[in-house]
């Protein structure tokens, strides 16, 4: 069994106290979150969640790094993002009650907090802080997928040329 890093670990309570997304939560709200959460140790290559599996949990990576990959149409795997400590992920799948669109696997020994769908159902109805946290997580994910789309557009543009002018802005040649 591999050992975790020697660097002293923050307690899960300290992690939430210091995490920017949880700053506005009251102590009681943070305690309820931690009362639901499980701490999971992860090791390099270990999947935290797998593509195609039911999305019943959401996660906060509190130590280590992870990679996000998904299956290409040809059956190979493509890495689409890297996650650093502090990343909150898995929220959209839980909210939409859909299967995981990607696999997230540890790149380093680390820890994550695992929250249940039930917590969202119970707390989401009462906590504006949790509602705002979910919006921020969605925001973060939207920024990430927008960047992926722009990267693909850049690649395609290099192969096929650009769009047309639109009042000083260039608009794609098809759409709508």
């Amino acid at each position: 069994m591999q050992e975790l890093p020697e660097k002293p670990s923050l307690s899960t309570r300290e992690v939430l106290e210091e995490h920017p997304l949880f700053q506005r939560f009251s102590e009681a709200e943070r305690a309820r979150l931690l009362g639901d959460a499980q701490v999971r140790e992860v090791f390099p290559g270990e999947a935290i969640c797998r593509e195609g599996s039911p999305a019943n949990e959401w996660y906060l990576l509190i130590e280590g790094r992870a990679r996000v990959s998904r299956t290409r149409p040809d059956g190979g795997q493509e890495i689409i993002a890297a996650l650093e400590a502090g990343a909150l992920f898995g929220v959209v799948g839980v909210l939409d009650n859909e299967r995981r669109p990607a696999t997230i696997a540890a790149l380093q020994p680390g820890r994550c907090l695992v929250f249940s769908r039930g917590l969202l159902e119970a707390e989401g109805r009462q906590s504006l802080c949790l509602a705002e946290l979910l919006c921020m997580a969605l925001n973060h994910q939207l920024r990430a997928v927008n960047q992926r789309l722009l990267g693909m557009a850049r690649d395609a543009d290099g192969a096929e040329g650009g769009g047309r002018d639109f009042g000083g802005w260039r608009q794609p040649t098809s759409g709508g």
């Binding site: 927008n146 789309l149 722009l150 557009a153 395609a156 543009d157 802005w169 260039r170 608009q171 794609p172």
Partner: peptide, 13 residues
């Protein structure tokens, strides 16, 4: 909502 295309194509998001 447009990404203005600095270093790449414009993309309507």
């Amino acid at each position: 909502v447009l990404h203005s295309g600095v270093g790449g194509p414009a993309v309507t998001l």
